[in-house]
Structure formats: C-alpha cells, structure tokens
Simulated scan of single mutants.
Amino acid sequence: MLDTVDPAAGQAVLADAITSRFAGKIALVSSFGTESAILLHMVAQIDKATPVIFLETGKLFPETLAYRDALIARLGLTGVRNIRPSPAQLTTWDPEGTLWERDTELCCAIRKTNPLDEALEGFTAWITGRKRVQGGGRANLQLVEPGADGRITVNPLAFWNDDELDAYFVTHNLPRHPLQAQGYTSIGCATCTLRPLPGQDKRSGRWAGQKKTECGIHTARLAATAWEI
C-alpha cells in the first residue's frame, strides 16, 4: 500500500486511465463542489469528451448549478451527463420532497446512489475527487482501488494536501464555487449542508448533527489496491 505519493503521480495515473488502461470505459463523477474544478480541469486537458457524471438530486444549491454551467463553458467539457433520480422512486418514497427530514440514508439512496449505479452501467472504471486529507474513511485512500462490484475506482487527488489544492486553483486561474466565499467548505444538497464551525474539518457541515459522513456512493464498493504506478 502506498503511503506517500508525489501529487504529479495522480495526474499520470489519471492520464493513463483515460487514454490507455480504461480508454472509452471510464467516467468522472463530479459534484461540481468546492474542489471539483481541479479534476475537471485535469480531465479537460486530457480529453474534453470524457464522460462526466453529475448527480442532479433536485436538492442542490442554485449556486452549484450555476457553477456547473460556468465550468462546463470555461473548460469546454462536452461529456457532462446530468443524472436525475427515478421519478417512480420519488413518487413512491418522497412524493412531498421532505424525505431528507426523516431518513437521510434513504433520501441519498434515491437521489444519489441508485441513479449513479445506473449511470455507471457499461463503465469499467470511475474517477473520484476524494482525498486522504478529508479524514474519516478516506484517510487510507489509494490512487487506484477495486470495488466490490468489479469496477475500478481512480482517486487522482488521494495524496494531495490543502496547499497543493489551493496552488492548483491559483496556477490555472480556476474559479471558485460561489458559496466558498460564504464559508462553505464542502457542498452537497442545500437541505443537508451547513457551514462548518471554526476549528471543524471541511466536511463537518455535511449531515451536521448526524452519525453520517458519506452519502453512500463511496461505500460498499472498495476493497484493496488494484494496480500501482
């Protein structure tokens, strides 16, 4: 298992995954959140037509949707797919749109996990923006990991720290998510995202007050290191 990796190694793994190892069979899953522009920019430099899966849950901040549109135009991305929840599942389980108040696990399953599972059909691998510095279950991330479903997960930014992330924004003059200026550091659905309190970690505003740190799209899929650089 790798413990330290040069940040450039993640970019090399990403390029190899898109152009060679999983050519035509890999997609980037992006929330268009506070740090998403980095991977989106990297992917655009490799192949602007790379499929980008965006989960439009129906509960996102308007600022996130505007940021998505701005980044697509800025980076020239042509493969963005806006994936929405199943109307049948919404009608059955969340007809009033208030399920998030009662059962966040089921809400996330309907609005994120299930739609993503369908969107990833046919892909051999997918790319995420997860990082070790985010802590919790992400503290031991590797650059490449196999999932329980047989699909490979590529985490190009796994070993990047906050300074390296910030430097990439500056170097490439990338726009920040508009809510970042208001104190938001990790952004999901508007219904379940708060600004973190001083001294708290970046993701503490997600499902604040609950014993929940992941929506489910990154759980029950990962096993161990698949291939290394």
Results as ranks from 00 to 15, higher is better:
residue 89 Q to M: 13
residue 213 T to E: 15
residue 25 K to S: 13
residue 212 K to Y: 12
residue 22 F to V: 05
residue 127 I to Q: 05
residue 156 P to V: 03
residue 156 P to F: 02
residue 105 E to S: 06
residue 134 Q to G: 00
residue 103 D to S: 03
residue 151 R to H: 01
residue 125 A to R: 09
residue 203 R to C: 10
residue 210 Q to A: 13
residue 51 P to H: 07
residue 205 G to A: 09
residue 221 R to S: 12
residue 135 G to R: 06
residue 172 H to W: 03
residue 187 I to W: 05
residue 65 L to I: 12
residue 27 A to I: 01
residue 95 P to K: 11
residue 111 R to C: 04
residue 60 L to S: 02
residue 174 L to Y: 04
residue 146 P to K: 10
residue 117 D to P: 01
residue 159 F to R: 06
residue 61 F to P: 06
residue 181 A to K: 13
residue 169 F to M: 12
residue 184 Y to F: 15
residue 26 I to H: 05
residue 17 A to E: 02
residue 175 P to D: 04
residue 122 G to P: 07
residue 180 Q to I: 05
residue 145 E to Q: 15
residue 50 T to Q: 06
residue 124 T to F: 04
residue 150 G to I: 03
residue 81 R to H: 11
residue 12 A to E: 15
residue 218 H to K: 00
residue 197 L to R: 15
residue 228 E to P: 00
residue 116 L to C: 09
residue 65 L to N: 10
residue 138 R to Q: 01
residue 17 A to K: 02
residue 109 A to G: 13
residue 52 V to M: 09
residue 206 R to Q: 10
residue 28 L to V: 11
residue 186 S to H: 08
residue 9 A to E: 15
residue 211 K to I: 02
residue 39 L to A: 09
residue 124 T to C: 04
residue 166 D to M: 04
residue 63 E to Y: 01
residue 134 Q to K: 05
residue 35 E to H: 07
residue 167 A to N: 05
residue 86 S to Y: 06
residue 161 N to F: 01
residue 128 T to S: 15
residue 100 W to P: 01
residue 28 L to T: 08
residue 201 D to Y: 08
residue 198 P to I: 00
residue 108 C to D: 15
residue 144 V to K: 04
